[in-house]
Amino acid sequence: MKRVVFTLAFGAPKYAKFALGLGRSLRLIGDSSHRVVVTDIKRDDWKPAFDEVVYVPRPENPYHAKFRAFDFFDADAALFIDADSLVFRRLDSIWSEFDGQPVAVQGWPISHGDEWHCDITKVLNQTGFSELNQFNGGLVYYENTAESKRVLEQVEHYRQNYAETGFNAFRGHVPDETCLSLAMAKTGLGICVPDRRDYMNTGVGLIGDLRMDIRRAECSFVCRRRELRTVRPHVFHAHLYSQFLVYWKQLRALEQLEQYERTHPFGWMSPGHKLRRSIERRILKAQGRI
């Protein structure tokens, strides 16, 4: 089974920087999923962060381009991750849990009285569903199967007839999340795994410090979303934090590490490190330990 993790980077150069950060973070932790970036931004440094670069013109609705993976590349399963994300743990458990599902996201069910891009009661009355799944579209899995196509065709249907759903537009565009949620409800296909899986988290509702250090593969924080919880996500979707220095600091560190790899050979030991070894060896010898 060919599995591809992919992201989109269209328009401003900052999106390329975000995407590079994502690819580099995956590479740094040794994740072996095939990485693809779909972009209209020409750069000569997409590799080695990505194994494959697909150049396409900027789509009319970039939010929905995430559902077109199999127009861009060949695969049996695709995991979309938003470009402004960093990955701290390998994706194996995500691939394992989502395997065999036409579509999979992480979130929770919502029903009458809840708010999500509008008053949900209005949408449920208009569409006739008893509940919908609310999730962040920064992490979406789907497969190259007939069932997946049914869901994605339904997504397209809702995109074209969005006004009838009762949902509001988002930044002048039809959002992908609401359409996918409606399509999953309509077809009865796909899964929404509980938020507690911590496959992805955006740090929304943060309490205290966001502890994030790419050099230690560390990302954890306390946040108040549906409940108050300590979170150690596989994927940190920067989202709001793309405007915080801590995120850009990680991007910079990742870039520096890539440069380091280019300029240093296998197993390189710095002169400082060698000196330290030399001193410590003498100490250990004097102690009679070696």
Binding site: L28, P48, A217, L257, E261, W268, R277, E280
Partner: peptide
């Protein structure tokens, strides 16, 4: 930095040259 720059949390840490480190 071995075959590439990577963050590692191994099951087994083989001290190897670190036998000369405190």
């Amino acid at each position: 930095r071995r075959y590439g720059v990577r963050y590692v949390e191994p099951i087994i840490f083989h001290a190897s040259r670190y036998i000369n480190f405190l």
